[in-house]
């Protein structure tokens, strides 16, 4: 039996990672730009927020600074690709390894501990505990027979609001004149250039925005976990992709609004699946990347296999019907 508390924790961090996944959706899906900067910019966000907080900057400002740092990192990748004419994958990889050293420089050491610092979540919990909302929600849980309660509802609820706000802003942005041009850049670059859009600038800004979200998410994860580590971004791009692909497979992509909510759902489900998988006896935390890889492969392959299977069934049915008609005629 998987405990409610574990699933609750998975949802909590899933909602925070969802912001990163939205960033990956923007680069991979909207701009059709496989941007690997993410592995580095996630840590950049964590590092900038961490070091700022340790130097007495207010946590909210520190988190916003992290987003700005991510934006700059993304813009550099965009410039490498558009002005330097470097292949998209390679410009991301170059930026990723460059950021590894830059992140070390920002932090000054490989790991920052934020356990004794005032993080955005600590402030939030202090504020929240005055409202008495936890007692209310836990009372509801007790009423349905739960015995153990989550430490706070503040993070999961407030982060849901923040993540949804980012989703709605992104949805709106993608429908503005600039946003439409951005999407067209990912869809048909030649066409949008013939409608007087500067595709280079759109790519630079788009990848910048994407990495701003990634770094923002990294800053929050660092404050949530109580540390920033130079290695915490390894494989982040795959986690982001996993969220995008799982979400798309489960919830569809008919419109932009649908696709972005699917990505958020995908991020939460990914966390839940990983949490459940890690509870299996013979799997331990080191297997996480393997689990992720298997998940992504399953989410990529399963829908196609189901489609093929359905088509096969359909053809068999048609054939059988035809046979029956023939027999009837004879």
């Amino acid at each position: 039996m998987f405990s409610f508390i574990a699933i609750f924790g998975a949802v909590e961090s899933g909602v925070i990672y969802a912001i990163m996944a939205l960033g990956v959706y923007l680069s991979f899906r909207v701009l059709d730009f496989p941007d690997l900067t993410v592995d580095g910019s996630f840590v950049t966000g964590a590092a900038v927020a961490g070091i700022s907080i340790m130097h007495g900057v207010s946590p909210v400002l520190a988190t916003l600074l992290a987003a700005v740092a991510g934006f700059i990192a993304g813009c550099v990748t965009g410039v490498l690709h558009t002005k330097g004419k470097i292949n998209a994958l390679l410009s991301g990889i170059l930026m990723m390894i460059a950021l590894y050293s830059i992140n070390l420089r920002i932090m000054g050491r490989p790991t920052l501990s934020l356990l004794n610092e005032t993080t955005i979540f600590k402030q939030l919990r202090d504020f929240w505990s005055g409202t008495g909302l936890d007692t209310f929600f836990n009372g509801m849980l007790a009423a349905i027979g739960m015995e153990r309660f989550p430490a706070t509802w503040a993070i999961v609820l407030v982060m849901m609001v923040v993540t949804l706000a980012i989703k709605f802003i992104t949805d709106y942005y993608l429908k503005t004149e600039i946003g439409l041009a951005l999407r067209a850049t990912g869809d048909n670059q030649r066409m949008i250039r013939s409608f007087s859009a500067n595709t280079d600038n759109l790519i630079i800004v788009g990848i910048g925005y994407s990495n701003a979200l990634v770094a923002f998410s990294g800053a929050l994860i660092a404050q949530h976990g109580g540390f920033a580590d130079v290695g915490m971004g390894i494989g982040m791009i795959i986690i982001g992709l996993a969220s995008v692909i799982i979400g798309e497979a489960l919830f569809g992509t008919k419109t932009i609004a649908r696709a972005t909510i699917a990505v958020i759902g995908g991020a939460v489900i990914y966390r839940i699946v990983v949490t459940i998988a890690l509870r299996v006896d013979f799997l331990d935390t080191g297997d996480m990347k393997l689990i992720t890889a298997v998940l992504v492969i399953a989410a990529l392959v399963a829908p196609k296999m189901m489609q093929t299977h359905r088509e096969k069934k359909r053809r068999q049915r048609k054939r059988a019907e035809l046979e029956r008609i023939k027999v009837g005629e004879v």
């Binding site: 709106y172 942005y173 429908k175 503005t176 004149e177 600039i178 946003g179 439409l180 041009a181 999407r183 067209a184 869809d187 048909n188 066409m191 949008i192 409608f195 007087s196 859009a197």
Partner: peptide, 26 residues
């Protein structure tokens, strides 16, 4: 044309050709 965008979105892209693109809805 941009295949994954709708007819009205494509027209909006073309409509902005000789204007500055803004953050208003397309």
């Amino acid at each position: 044309t941009a295949p994954s965008m709708t007819i009205e979105e494509n027209l909006a892209l073309a409509y902005s050709r000789n204007k500055k693109r803004t953050l208003r809805l397309g």
